[in-house]
Write a protein that binds this DNA or RNA. Structure first.
Length: 425
RNA sequence: GGAGGGUUGGCUGAGUGGUUGAAAGCACCGGUCUUGAAAACCGGCAUGGGUUCACGCCCAUCCAGGGUUCGAAUCCCUGACCCUCCGCCA
């Protein structure tokens, strides 16, 4: 959520920033509602003050044993006017609130202009795409040949967009998770955390998935209103919801491995082959809760932590900064890491690192006590995949494939696989 | 599934219809004292909003939503969450 004061006082400027990301702020409607709100609020508060005064007078009169009937009768009219005013005010406030919840974050000035992913800006590359003396296969063919990846069985068990791994390939995925968690906890200073995979609607509102993106989520039927998490960002960031943190506690850095569940509504026909886009996938996620003044520096650092995983796995990748039009709803700035996939001859997203500034914090009421002011102030939140595990598995298969269809194991993973150096059928 | 208890400020915790936005303690901030610190003592200290050049004044908020009442943290109803015991269970 944006700062309501800013929204009230400088709607035109805000509209300009939001237009960069393709969001048209209805300034006139906002101004109309605002004006109405203000007028109704003043009126309501005056009536409330009057009611409070009268009630006090009646109390005092009663204490003295005077007749309060005339005073009570005089209140009747006031009461009905107050009720009407309160009703109208709360309707306006609800409308404003609903409007505010659907306004995305402001893009940072350093975010390039652009409409969609084609306008994202590559800012650096690492590693060389491997050269093969044979025609490289994609992970689907490789997995099938190994007999360790079975999409037909997955479809029978669940449906499309699910995958099934067995044997060394399944173990490789587990090894990747272990490796990433160890790296981030031991070398990057994150605290490992285990979190709920089902969350309530408040948590999803806090991080910005609701109310606007309900169709992307799996909602459980049953007496409780639970949703499957689309990313660990939701439970982990919500660790600080409704809290006031001590200054010394910051920054808070958490890493969690969780499965992620996404309905992929609206992506019909996109990435239908293989395990690139699934209803269920594993991800290791880094989350940082920081002081506002250091969030931009932290974004660079966090991105570096994600890059480190790819470097240690020796997977070629590039870093792109998302253009304003491609930014996620809550993000002020996002770096995507894209790994080279020989099966597609393309760089594909494998991590997304974002600074949400105070946008999520305001929805979450996640604050810290600034020693300067002594007042509770909003924190800044950031997160980044470190990495999307399923896609990392795909990248390893495709980049480390041999002519005979076996898969080499990156050096750093072998200790997690009992020393295994290659996966063969 | 059955029975009961609870939700109050940063924290602990009093408060069962009228100066209670809320006692007390802790924490925190300032001061006195001290060579310095601690202790002791004195003072300050909720959040959001409206209005004002400003001092200030006003409104809302004691889990949420309804209700009773001239007046609700306090009474009634519904819901959420937490806890305890019993049953079942990984």
């Amino acid at each position: 959520m944006l700062d309501p004061k800013l929204l009230r006082n400088e709607p035109e400027e805000i509209a300009v920033h939001l237009r960069r990301r393709g969001f048209e702020l209805d300034v006139e409607r906002l101004a109309r509602l605002e004006q109405e709100r203000k007028q109704l609020q003043v009126e309501t508060q005056q009536l409330q003050a009057e009611r409070n005064r009268s009630a006090k007078v009646i109390g005092q009169a009663k204490a003295k044993g005077e007749d309060i009937q005339p005073l009570v009768q005089a209140m009747a009219d006031l009461k009905s006017r107050l009720e009407a005013a309160e009703g109208r005010l709360s309707r306006i406030q609800e409308e404003l609130e609903a409007l505010a919840l659907e306004i995305p974050n402001l893009p940072h000035p350093s975010v390039p202009d652009g409409n969609d992913e084609r306008d994202n800006l590559e800012i650096r590359r690492w590693g060389e795409p491997p050269r093969f003396s044979f025609t490289p296969r994609d992970h689907v063919d490789l997995g099938a040949a190994l007999g360790q990846m079975d999409f037909e069985a997955a479809a029978r068990i669940a449906g499309s967009r699910f995958s099934l791994l067995t044997g060394p390939l399944a173990r490789l995925q587990r090894a990747l998770i272990q490796f990433m968690l160890d790296l981030h906890t031991e070398e990057h200073g994150y605290t490992e955390s285990y979190v709920p995979y089902l969350v309530n609607a408040d948590s999803l509102r806090g991080t910005g998935q609701l109310p606007k993106f309900e169709e992307d989520l799996f909602k459980l039927a049953g007496e409780h209103e639970y949703y499957l998490i689309p990313t660990a960002e939701v439970p982990v960031t919500n660790m600080v919801r409704d809290r006031i943190l001590d200054a010394e506690a910051l920054p808070l850095c958490y890493v969690a491995h969780t499965p992620c569940f996404r309905s992929e509504a609206g992506s019909y026909g996109k990435d239908t082959r293989g395990m690139i886009r699934q209803h269920q996938f594993e991800k290791v996620e880094m989350v940082q809760i920081v002081r506002p003044e250091e969030s931009w520096e932290r974004l660079e650092q966090l991105t570096g932590h994600a890059e480190r995983v790819l470097q240690m796995l020796e997977l070629p990748y590039r870093v792109v900064v998302l253009c304003a039009g491609d930014l996620g709803f809550s993000a002020a700035k996002t770096y995507d890491l894209e790994v080279w996939l020989p099966g597609q001859q393309k760089y594909r997203e494998i991590s997304s690192c974002s600074n949400f500034t105070d946008f999520q914090a305001r929805r979450l009421k996640a604050r810290w006590r600034d020693p300067e002011s002594g007042k509770p102030e909003l924190v800044h939140t950031l997160n980044g995949s470190g990495l999307a595990v399923g896609r990392t598995l795909v990248a390893i298969m495709e980049n480390y494939q041999q002519e005979d269809g076996s898969i080499g194991i990156p050096e750093v993973l072998r200790r997690y696989l009992g020393g295994l150096e290659r996966i063969a059928s």
